[in-house]
Amino acid sequence: MSVERRSRDARSRPAFNLVDSVGAFGTPTFAEVLRRELLALPDGVLPIEGEQGGLVDPASLGVTLLSSRADAERIEIAVGVFYTEIVGGCSCGDEPFGVNGYTELRLRIERADGGALILLRGIERCVD
């Protein structure tokens, strides 16, 4: 097996599972179930990075469903993620401060097992 083949295989493995979301797809509770499952993921699973060089406060994450589409095998969704980035001060006397941020993620969920991949991390910007 070549190195190129292994890297392609690694990208095709699910990053995490969203089994409950697959079950709720097409129902009025889908957006809430998806939000709950995404927010329950361990810190660092979602590729959320602040723009100011600070750390994203995991307790500040908010997720909203932007769009969804599906076929017999997969569900593709776009979500907006709101967060607060904690930015350290520029000198010893400065206190850390929070900056509100936003990014969009596109995910693919396999209907068979709930395996989910992040396809694209979209725009990331500060929110006033």
Results as ranks from 00 to 15, higher is better:
A40W: 02
L65R: 03
F82M: 09
L18G: 04
R111E: 08
V22A: 10
D94P: 01
T27V: 09
A31F: 02
D20Q: 12
L107I: 02
V56I: 13
P47R: 06
A24N: 11
R13E: 15
E37T: 01
A70F: 06
L66R: 10
D20L: 10
V3P: 00
F25T: 07
L46S: 08
S21G: 10
F97Q: 01
E110P: 00
Y83G: 00
E37G: 02
L38S: 09
L66Y: 00
I118M: 04
R5V: 10
L105Q: 02
A31L: 07
F25E: 15
V3T: 10
G62D: 13
L65K: 04
L66S: 03
S60N: 08
D9W: 10
A78T: 15
N17F: 14
L41N: 04
P14Q: 05
G54V: 05
D43F: 09
E110K: 12
E76S: 05
E110T: 14
C92D: 12
L55N: 08
L120W: 10
I77Y: 02
P42V: 07
E73Q: 14
A10G: 02
A15G: 08
R108F: 00
G115D: 07
L41S: 02
P96Q: 11
G53T: 07
R74C: 00
R5H: 13
R13I: 11
L39G: 08
L46V: 03
G54P: 00
A40Y: 03
G23N: 15
F30Q: 11
V127Y: 07
G44T: 05
S67L: 01
G53E: 07
R13T: 15
E104G: 06
F30E: 12
E4H: 14
I75D: 12
N100M: 05
P42S: 13
G53D: 06
I48T: 01
R121D: 08
G101Q: 05
I77F: 03
L38R: 07
V22L: 11
S7V: 11
S12M: 09
T27K: 14
V81Q: 04
L18S: 12
R5L: 15
G44M: 09
R8Q: 14
S12C: 02
G23K: 11
F82H: 13
L107V: 01
F25D: 14
E37R: 00
S2T: 12
Y83M: 03
R13H: 14
S7H: 14
D57A: 13
R6W: 14
L65S: 07
A116W: 06
T29V: 11
N17W: 13
S7N: 11
I86G: 02
R111T: 02
L18A: 12
F30S: 10
G98N: 05
G26A: 07
E32W: 01
S91K: 11
E95Q: 11
I109E: 09
I77R: 01
G50N: 05
L119A: 03
V81E: 06
R108E: 15
F16L: 07
E51Y: 08
P58Q: 04
E76R: 15
V87L: 10
D71F: 01
I77N: 01
L66W: 00
E76M: 04
D20S: 14
E95C: 04
E85P: 00
D71R: 01
E49N: 07
P58N: 08
L55T: 08
L65T: 05
A59K: 04
A116H: 03
G115M: 05
